[in-house]
Design a protein around this nucleic acid. Sequence first.
DNA 1: CAAGGGGCTTACAGCAGGCGTACAGCGAAT
DNA 2: ATTCGCTGTACGCCTGCTGTAAGCCCCTTG
Lengths: 236, 236
Amino acid sequence: MKKTGPEAKLLVVDDEPNIRELLSTSLRFAGFDVVAAANGRDALAAAETHNPDLAVLDVMLPDMDGFTVTRRLRAAGRHFPVVFLTARDDTDDKVTGLTVGGDDYVTKPFSLDEVVARIRAVLRRTHPLEDDDAVIRVDDLELDDDAHEVRRGGEVIDLSPTEFKLLRYLMMNPNRVLSKAQILDHVWEYDFNGDASIVESYISYLRRKIDRNPNAVALIQTKRGVGYLLRTADKR
Amino acid sequence: MKKTGPEAKLLVVDDEPNIRELLSTSLRFAGFDVVAAANGRDALAAAETHNPDLAVLDVMLPDMDGFTVTRRLRAAGRHFPVVFLTARDDTDDKVTGLTVGGDDYVTKPFSLDEVVARIRAVLRRTHPLEDDDAVIRVDDLELDDDAHEVRRGGEVIDLSPTEFKLLRYLMMNPNRVLSKAQILDHVWEYDFNGDASIVESYISYLRRKIDRNPNAVALIQTKRGVGYLLRTADKR
DNA sequence: CAAGGGGCTTACAGCAGGCGTACAGCGAAT
DNA sequence: ATTCGCTGTACGCCTGCTGTAAGCCCCTTG
């Protein structure tokens, strides 16, 4: 009935059409069943109709704020968790109470992959029945999302936040070429308007840390003119 | 979050919707089965219907005070323990009598984690059958909630109340990154309106007391840009 | 083989996050 | 009244992260 991984049903609520579409599309692609709403009123109605497993909820809505929506949902007996979206200068230090219970929040502008990861983490926490692990494995590489830790052959590797997100994106898509544009879109914040060459730099940083053994087969491979891919041992 | 106890059933009674929801959500997430009521009359009815194992009861209710509710409950043969919620400025004499029997009280504004801990403590006392221990262990670190005492390698460490709550929260969530916002929401009182940087200060205080050995692997680790985590030895 | 383009790596400036200490206010204990 | 410990804020220092730029290498193609 309640599903944690893909196929869970999500309610996405944001009044900005761009953000709403961006989120709906990526979440759908990530395997979720998505229902969208543009304001609090519609959100409440949609929650009644579709009974989602989780809501992604902008705290600044035209008709009522996200907290009010949440309170009304809960009062109506809907106890699914919420991932709030907040403006960065809102939350940076002040706004509290967003992480009570199984809830969490993400600041705008966000990275799409980060939102997906946070949603998965919340679903994992609130429905611990499923043996859906927080650890992604590719060969002897392990990425633990809960502990925010990466290990290669059991040895801990220290990564910066951006390196971590990049590696997670690669590991979520093993043996598949990812273009620099794709990587930018998924790993960097959606308003980033720098050069795609930054991906090259970060791939380089990652290689230095996880592919440091020159004798072993490299995990991160370049497909010239196309993109990068993370290769598993059995697919070589 | 560690879920303890076999899903005891709680009755939460408070007339302020925000507090009621805050408590219900947290307690539900902590693994309890929660029923909520907004006033004394509904509370009595809910107690009849649901037969809870414990009640969290605001002493200031619109229709009758918490003592009256308790008296009527007991008169009706309901002998489950009660955790009272009282305003901080209530005089001591008003508070006396709240801890007789297995009962306890918490002053508003409270820290969410503190309420959960107190509820668990009361349940532990009244249902000693459960092999639910008051001691949390992480490596050679022990935190005894009943004795309010912390030991590292058997040696007692003196902590201030805030330090204790912070450490307890960390120890309840080992090997999981906790953001400063999460820590604020769980450890500090719900109306705390200050800066999240206070968490940094208290982490610093804690380190000075429990991670004083510079040669050993630090228990408290910083995940820059993400949060903090308490690391166990086997997960290194 | 030469030229061009794509990719790799490193350097670096600017900046944000985190650390630790100092301190003032406050309430409890003496 | 005085002392004491605890809390929350402020602040200066430092570390390490980020994004850009630049030079080099290598692959591809004519």
